[in-house]
Design a binder for these strands. Structure first.
Lengths: 96, 96
DNA sequence: AAATTTGGTTTATATTATAAACTTGTTTAC
DNA sequence: GTAAACAAGTTTATAATATAAACCAAATTT
């Protein structure tokens, strides 16, 4: 009846990050920070978890002299997101 | 961009419970247990939280000699659920 | 009358989310 | 030229959550 919801995605911030990356090809750390309004520390932690699970790819480079972190979604991430949304429908769709 | 997700509903088990109650007028503890496959302890705790928030109403009676706990959703619960689903759309709807 | 079952509740623990504090380097103000 | 403020993060500590294990009271079965 109720499929399990992938705990990695069932987190407001991680879901927001993946949601952003789904539609954007690539995003900088600061962009994610602006869009999600979350603290840098929180984002840093959640990005690492998503990366460990290989839901996203993280590339650390430099923009001029400052560090620049770019994130993008992986195939695995897209699949996981789609499965999560599908599972979620069972919870939020009205009636049986 | 991303509205906050009501933490009370953003929990697999509590969401499942509310989801059940939305479409069923009234449900017994054991029914919830069967449908969610969760442990009784976990359900007990989560029901109490939902009740504290006045998202659900809990009525303790007896079925013959055994205790019987009946739950039903409140107006507040319905509203919260609807708001949660609406907020969630922003996360799971593809593209901007 | 001991063991098992029903219908839960309480408590302990493991996991999470989150913010605060810290780091490394850069730019600006004095 | 050096102290203060800023950029872009990371690490660590704490608070909140989810969850299961242990427990309880009464009823039933063996």
């Amino acid at each position: 009846m109720f499929q399990n919801l992938d705990p990695l995605l069932h987190s407001q911030l991680r879901l927001a990050i993946v949601s952003l990356l789904i539609s954007v090809e690539e995003a900088e750390f600061t962009y994610i920070k602006e869009k999600t309004k979350a603290t840098a520390g929180n984002i840093s932690v959640q990005i690492e978890k998503l990366q460990e699970a290989e839901y996203i790819k993280v590339e650390k480079t430099f923009k001029g002299k400052y560090p620049l972190t770019k994130c993008s979604i992986t195939k695995k991430g897209i699949k996981a997101f789609e499965a999560y949304v599908k599972a979620l429908q069972q919870y939020i769709q009205p009636a049986t």
